[in-house]
Design a protein around this nucleic acid. Structure first.
Lengths: 181, 181, 181, 181
DNA sequence: CATGAATGAGCTTTCATTCAT
DNA sequence: TATGAATGAAAGCTCATTCAT
């Protein structure tokens, strides 16, 4: 039973395969087969193989760049914790893997990842500002705290798969909050 | 002017190319050409392409697993800073890229990376214990602090290339130190 | 002037070349060239080289396994002679060579050859039973006679090419008939 | 523990490997490895790969071409049976396989096989003449009987491995003897 | 004699991409 | 829009053979 139209099925297949074996190691023929689509049709929708990856990133990842942060003044730890629970990244676990893994393969992927990182720092920073109204003046320290928290969140998204080590964001949130009092 | 024996030149070439374009995207013929070595000789030394990568990681990266840490009691920030300046990883910048980039390609690379991560955490933890003799009992907090610092260090090694954002380890060291008092 | 579709031409070429120089000594590139087909297309139809040989045996040899034998009661010699003239093997001379020569190369070839041998014995046996109604009880002698005749027929098909010696099946038919009276 | 000198070990290894996988499919490097001999030495003794096969056939197969036949007048069946038990071929089972399998590979192998066949026919013929003094005149029938018996003996040596069917030479001897009375 | 690094042509196979239908 | 046969460059790898030491 085939689900979705051809183009969607191609992207579904590519998402699964790129996440599994990587972009370079995935032949277009295999994508077409898994998508139950003739090889020719794949190149009808995506003239070059790289276009599949670009479309995937374009259409299946979204870095939410918004101003709203769910911050509670006086509770920096809780604020960061909540931020960690709702990363500004709309993407399946497979797409997340692709984002980190293929950042070298094409500029558009790197872009997305850079934007995610930037947004994470901005949010952390903004959240801390709101949660700690008294810390307004300490720009440098807030900056470092935000970057550290962002680094830990990205570590969770990516490196922990490679290193096998997990970090509890809530505990890090508390640590950072404690450092800013 | 040819430098070094054939095997070394092959590894030199591979190191450069894998770091540049990635393992999958680097044909063995190109490695051989850059090494000024006939294609056949490459397979004389490395029967499978993957063996080149494995040899590179085996022979050109070393995770120093030692007990010694340059810790100063009462100065956790300085202690962490010094630790950041001497990562327990003996490897060229190219090999460092390879280590992170190809962690999915072969188990042996992932292994190395995992070991590096483990060693970073262990050292950070140990350094903090020595620098903060009074914190002995707070296992959980020390653990989180160590993991956070390790995450930032790995971020510096890897993610900052992808995201274009740098973190100052010294500042993070101070932040963490401050959080533990 | 190209005759037949690509797949057929590939098999035609392979049949000729395998019969001539043997499977192992025939490069796929030479098959493709003789078939006037690009190398890639060969692997489109036959993903592995061995698949060409298997397809050849599957599609171009047929061991007829039937119950009908053209037997004349009272004339065992003539009956065997006629049997020798219509071997239960539908295959070109080239395919016959391949069948014997490559029996070690792949199980499917050996299989075919084994089936041919079995059918030859079965038919010889059945023919003799019909031609010599009085010999019903002498199972063992009929068995040996059938096996001997089959051996001679296969010798004619195969070994005589290697040894340069021919045997006249008619004369053997008479010899065997004479031995059974 | 290494047995025999280098040249002998090379031939031992080649005999085993050629019998197992065939001449074409056996790389010289594998022969050298099994012989525990450096690759270069193999080519010192045998400048071309084919020389190994030729030497094997030359030195490890012997077709005994003699006039003596252990014949008992009046007992053609027993005479043939004894002949079957002592084939005029001095060669290991492995060399026997090689002889049949590689007959296409080099003329010298085909030669040997042709000579074996000729000798088998000659002996069978001679044996029948001695065992049946009264059959002197019947040249044609003796010829056919001898060729048939030789065919069965070669079938036993070669084809039965491919077809999985065995023939009892003693029973064939009796059949032939019976046909000549 | 002994050694194994060196050589390069050639092998099977892969793959992105095209194109006639 | 849909199809899969067609294409050929290039990939990884093999292998007989050479040769300096």
């Amino acid at each position: 039973m085939v689900i979705g139209d051809a183009r969607t099925r191609i992207l579904d297949a590519a998402e699964e395969l790129f996440a599994g074996g990587g972009y370079e190691a995935t032949p277009t023929a295999v994508i077409a087969k898994l998508a139950e689509v003739p090889k020719g049709l794949l190149f009808h929708y995506f003239p070059k193989k790289i276009d599949v990856l670009v479309a995937l990133v374009d259409e299946r990842t979204l870095v939410e760049e918004t101003r709203e942060v769910d911050a509670v003044p006086g509770d920096p730890a809780g604020t960061l914790s909540r931020l960690a629970r709702r990363l500004p990244l709309r993407a399946s676990p497979a797409m997340r893997r692709i984002l980190f893994r293929e950042a070298d393969t094409h500029g558009s992927v790197k872009d997305r990842l850079g934007r995610l990182n930037g947004e994470l720092i901005r949010r952390s920073r903004f959240a801390l500002e709101l949660a700690l109204p008294g810390a307004r003046g300490e720009n440098a320290r807030l900056e470092v705290a935000a970057a550290t928290f962002a680094a830990v969140l990205l570590y969770q998204e990516n490196l922990c798969q490679l290193t096998g080590h997990q970090i509890d964001p809530d505990a890090v949130a508390e640590l950072i909050a404690h450092s800013l009092v």
